[in-house]
Design a protein around this nucleic acid. Structure first.
Lengths: 130, 130, 130, 130
DNA sequence: GTGGTCTAGACCACG
DNA sequence: GTGGTCTAGACCACC
């Protein structure tokens, strides 16, 4: 499980953990039944307090993306395809809406904004294609 | 000066103020030499604590988008066209990049992402056209 | 805000807090816009650590039953009638299902179980009617 | 001896074991003098840690529903009819009381609550009738 | 003043 | 060994 924490971003560590794990579940980097790293291991690896990790895991559990097996560990839940799609769609809408609003407020016309968006898409995509 | 504060967004109020004023300077809703509303007036109008406005103004001043004339008030600075464009471009790149990255990580193909972006653009645009 | 904590029940304190506040929101003992007691006050009143209360509040916020106004406090969110009803119905189904299952496993016939249920209902109801 | 373990319910496994065996004794699926499966066998069958089964058996022994014959095994105790009935009644009262209280607190009228209860009863009953 | 975050460390329940 | 809970206390951001 590959996580990167930015201690200077101002974003709480536990939220960074939540977001990244959620992302990996969405993109199936983490699949149903996969075990998450133990609280203590992940805490040691990221050099943060175990409770910080525990807190992140608790929220993921409340979201039902992750399940506890008591005394054993945490595992990725089965997420129904429909629910997954809804979460994805919502996430996407949010971020694209934010982008569109900014473009409009800056007075950038639609096609120009779309071009920049495409450029960004292709750049990132080509860099991260495997 | 027209500002809207969303108390439920989680975004700090002073940042909402900063962003909106910055936006207005960018789009020339506020022009060089225009005077900003006084801290007290704006605070009263938005029903927030004056310190919140004061803080926002300080940041705008640090950004050199605004100048303090002691004893008189705050005024929009002269911003060179080139610098303005660079700020705009950078802002736009940042937000569109973030959107693109999210789309890619969720495995959304380019044209699908573009479609959603356009939809968001048009929705917001039609709602806010004056 | 009236909360009772049972330190000996084995149920985590923060969950007791969550459940009771949720209950009060459901039953409109706490209404939209009402401010929750501050973390520190409630912690002092219940004689627990503020973080325990904070944790409870965080989960309620994640559930969107409660909203933060930064620097001011926490307030009961507007909950759409439909969503409220769904939450209520689910809660009710869960607890009545558990009751029914137990009755069946003990070999209690339906009408006998219903009679006991009615008795319990009336007893509690008459005690707590105002 | 037929037991079902739900790893996702959050209820400790040893408690699930206790409850189900107790249930079977109540309903006379297990009768006086019947031998319980050995700790090892049951643990292997349920694929859980033997200590978990051992712990469950200890509680049943403490409850005097079961007796240890050293070197031989565990056997279902003689339970006086009266005591059995009292245990049953108490269990039933507890769970039905909890259900009634919840219904009342949610403002559900008696007959509506009863209807839902009956529905739950019939659903579960028809599914598990043999 | 408000709530949020993080830490260090203790203790508990479960397997 | 696993995760969960709670505490005490520090520091931060916001209003």
């Amino acid at each position: 499980m590959l996580l990167e924490i930015d201690h200077h971003s101002g974003v709480p560590i536990y939220r960074q953990v939540i977001r990244q794990i959620r992302q990996q579940i969405m993109t199936e980097g983490l699949k149903e039944g996969d075990q998450l790293e133990t609280v203590r291991d992940l805490a040691a690896k990221l050099k943060v307090n175990p409770m910080t990790i525990s807190k992140a895991y608790s929220f993921l559990e409340a979201e039902e993306l992750v399940e506890r097996k008591r005394g054993i560990g945490l595992f990725v839940s089965k997420v129904k395809k429909g629910r997954l799609d809804r979460i994805k769609a919502k996430l996407l809408d949010t971020v694209l809406n934010r982008a569109a609003v900014t473009a409009i407020q800056l007075g950038i016309p639609e096609d120009e904004a779309v071009e920049i968006f495409k450029k960004q898409y292709r750049e990132y995509d080509s860099q991260n294609r495997r």
